[in-house]
Simulated scan of single mutants.
Amino acid sequence: MPEIFPQIPPVAMPEVIPSELPQQKFRLGEWVRWWQVPNGDFGRVIGVIYTQQASCIATGLHYLVFLDERSPSRDTCTYDFAFEKDIEILDKSSLERLRGNHA
C-alpha cells in the first residue's frame, strides 16, 4: 500500500456566522458511509464544520470523515468531507460486512 499523507481539505470561514447553527445529525466517533453510491466510502466522523456558499457549494453542516483502511478511496485520500444528506450511520453488522467486502 502506498504511503498516505494525512491532509485535511482546505476550508474558509463564513463571512457571517449565523446566530443559530443547525443541530448535528451525526456525532463525533460514529461510523458512517456514503449511501447513494455503489461501493461508497466509509469511516468515522472526526469533525464537523459549518460552511456557507462562499467556501462551499452548499450551506450547512459538513462532516469530516476519517476513512477506514478498507474504504475504497483510502489509497488516494485519508479524510473526506461529507454533506449531511449524503451519509448514513453504520450499525455494527453493516460495518463488519463492509470491512469484509473490501479486504
Rank of each mutant, 00 (worst) to 15 (best):
G29D: 03
A58M: 02
S94D: 14
D86P: 06
L21G: 04
Y63H: 03
P6D: 06
S93C: 09
D41M: 10
E15V: 07
F66T: 11
P14E: 03
Y50C: 13
A82V: 00
F26Y: 11
E84H: 07
C56Q: 09
P22Y: 00
M1P: 01
L95I: 04
L21M: 08
D91F: 06
R70T: 12
K85Y: 10
Q23M: 07
E69W: 09
S71G: 06
I4D: 03
Q53H: 08
D75I: 15
P14D: 03
F26E: 01
Y79C: 04
E96T: 13
D68G: 06
Y50T: 07
I87N: 03
P14N: 07
Y79M: 04
F66P: 00
M13W: 12
L28C: 06
Q53S: 09
L21P: 08
E88I: 09
V16M: 13
L67N: 11
I89K: 14
E20K: 13
Y79W: 04
M13V: 09
M1E: 02
V65N: 02
Q7A: 15
I89G: 01
V45F: 04
W31Q: 12
D75P: 09
I17K: 13
G60Q: 01
E88Q: 15
H62C: 00
L98Q: 13
D75V: 11
S73H: 08
P38N: 09
G47S: 06
E88T: 14
F83K: 11
T51N: 07
F83R: 11
V32M: 03
R99A: 03
W31N: 14
V37Q: 12
Q52N: 10
E96A: 15
I17N: 07
R99G: 02
M1R: 11
I89F: 01
E96G: 08
A12T: 14
K25P: 00
D75S: 13
R27P: 00
R44M: 05
T59E: 15
P72V: 02
F5C: 10
E30Y: 04
G40V: 02
R70F: 06
T76F: 15
R70K: 13
Y63K: 04
I4F: 12
Q53N: 14
V11Y: 05
